[in-house]
Computed example of a mutant assay.
Amino acid sequence: MDLMRAARLHIPSHTLTIEEVPKPAPGPGQVLIAVAAAGVCMSDVHLIDGTLGRPPHLQGDTVTIGHEIAGTIVELGPDVIQFQEGQRVVLQAGDVKNGQLHTRGVDFDGGWAEYALAAVESVFPLPDSLPFEQAAIVPDAVSTPWDAIVRTAAIKPGEAVGVWGVGGLGAHAVQLLRAVGAFPIIAVDPTPGARRRALDLGADLALDSADPAFREQVLAVTKGRALNAAFDFAGVSAVHEQALTVLAPEGRLILVGLSGRPLVVHDSTMFSYLKHEIRGHFGTELDAVPKLVDLAAGGRLDFSRSITDVLPLEKAGVAVERLQTKEGDPLRLILKP
């Protein structure tokens, strides 16, 4: 039996270990990928620490973690004709099974491993011009804010937008909001390094959420109009409260960061009077990843500044700790088997 190395998470004990496990074989409608790069996401951290709870579709108690994956096809399932061995590809962050979306590295084995299985519907060709490390983060780190912006929030050119939390998702949201013509773009983060990064990526203003003059600065840069939309990429209750205080009439608050905590509207009368909306967002539609790959390959988007560091698979625990403690202010860390 062929074996491979994989980072395995034992859900009940929150234990992550590098183990030797059987190398999978592709079945009908599947391909086997030799993983070249796998992203480390805050949702991986929250899965490990138990914040996200037990995966709803996971069979058993252990899973190979990782949902951001790029690599090369090394084996085709018996009926697969649309791909070929040796082809560079990037994987969607999930597969549809029995009509339901199952998240890779959560509900079934993911890409913190030497090899990963994928249904052909979730596999997209990758041009040679886009490095594996940059391509790997497109599913989720880029595609999730993209869908939150263009689908859930339906941002229009010229709309004033706030981005709370300039980490892996929020930093890309700043770039994407600029690409779709939002103005002004206000980034909000308590970390000085994150605020500097936001300005480098195209934010028009970067504010500390604890600034006593926060509301006044938002109103000043929007010429008194306040925000048409506010994105919470942090998953923090205080963000919801603050964002609602600077939303314009009919403004919408988009919840992207996951917290598992109650959502509270303190002034329901004002919320109704201003016709505010709160919209939840999760994941991405299937067409987002190939569209974003094309935009990057065509020079419309640049992810070269997104990769903070590349670590070997054996350092998966170190990568998780660095992301959790924000050591070195990482934007995205990549594991390389």
Rank of each mutant, 00 (worst) to 15 (best):
A37D: 04
A171E: 05
V289Q: 09
L247S: 09
H10M: 01
A34Q: 15
S268H: 08
I185S: 10
E216A: 15
Q87R: 02
V256W: 03
P262E: 02
A113H: 07
D267E: 10
L126D: 11
S43Y: 01
G299T: 09
E277Q: 15
R261Y: 06
G60Q: 11
A316H: 02
P28W: 01
S259F: 05
A220W: 05
E75T: 09
G158I: 05
A6P: 01
G71D: 09
A194G: 01
V63H: 02
K97C: 03
V142H: 00
P145H: 00
T308H: 09
F214E: 12
R322N: 08
V318K: 08
A148P: 15
F233G: 12
D204A: 07
A182Q: 05
E321R: 13
G170Q: 06
L52P: 04
P28D: 12
W146F: 15
E20C: 05
L117Q: 04
G60L: 10
D79L: 06
R151Y: 07
D109E: 08
V188H: 06
G105Y: 07
G181F: 08
D109P: 12
T51H: 12
A173R: 02
H14G: 03
A119P: 00
D109R: 03
V106H: 13
D128I: 03
Q100H: 15
A70K: 07
A113V: 02
I334Q: 02
Q82L: 10
I149G: 09
A238I: 13
G257N: 05
A141N: 07
M42A: 06
V90Q: 11
Q59T: 14
P125R: 11
S122L: 09
E216I: 06
F108H: 12
G202L: 06
L169P: 10
V89A: 13
V142T: 09
T72K: 11
H10I: 10
A296R: 08
G99R: 01
K97Q: 15
S304C: 02
A36M: 12
P212Q: 12
G298A: 08
W112V: 03
A136E: 04
